[in-house]
């Protein structure tokens, strides 16, 4: 049973993102429209690659990137590419940086920022969106970073403990 808890956790995060998007509509804040985009799944995958193992993290990034494309965006390729690349960059950065909770939070947030910028770029090129860059930054990018920072701060400690124990048990 304990073995299946990790996939179940990620499937739950995967689904909860769409429910979050359904419940939380873009709201008026500070005289402008703010979009809150959840990146809970990617956040957890980045924490897995930092605290858990590299192999497992990249595997999950790949599988859930593909699942994300098939189920939500219906354009296969964007997240399938971005999830593993962002996870890999975060992993490489953490290898040369100190491994403490504050640095990890900042780097994970950096990963979310990379993901947002990457997906904006690709969607702009294939003209799915026509949003201007400054609109993107103020309406979408900054509120999204704040939302995901709150999420990461809440889950980082329990997930660190859980992933470290999980990997320990795997190697035994």
């Amino acid at each position: 049973m304990r073995k299946y808890l990790l996939p179940l956790l990620f499937i739950f995060l995967f689904v909860i993102e769409s429910t979050f998007a359904l419940m939380v509509a873009p709201t008026e804040m500070f005289a402008n429209e703010r979009w809150l985009i959840p990146h809970f799944l990617l956040g957890a995958i980045m924490l897995l690659v930092i605290f858990g193992s590299r192999k497992l993290g990249l595997l999950y990034a790949f599988i859930f990137g593909l699942l994300f494309d098939i189920v939500y965006t219906e354009i296969i390729g964007i997240n399938l590419f971005l999830f593993p690349v962002v996870t890999y960059i975060v992993y490489q950065l953490m290898k040369i940086l100190q491994n403490n909770l504050i640095v990890t939070t900042i780097i994970t947030l950096f990963g979310v920022a990379l993901m947002e910028l990457g997906s904006y770029g690709v969607n702009y090129i294939i003209s799915i969106t026509t949003m201007g860059f400054s609109d993107f930054i103020f309406m979408r990018f900054i509120p999204t970073l704040i939302l995901n920072l709150i999420f990461i701060v809440i889950v980082i400690f329990p997930l660190k403990k859980y992933f470290e124990r999980y990997v320990e048990r795997l190697s035994l």
């Binding site: 429910t19 998007a21 359904l22 985009i37 939500y72 219906e74 354009i75 969607n123």
Partner: peptide, 11 residues
Amino acid sequence: IGRNPLRWEEK
């Protein structure tokens, strides 16, 4: 029951 969380395309 769900919505595209990335919101680039509204689905």
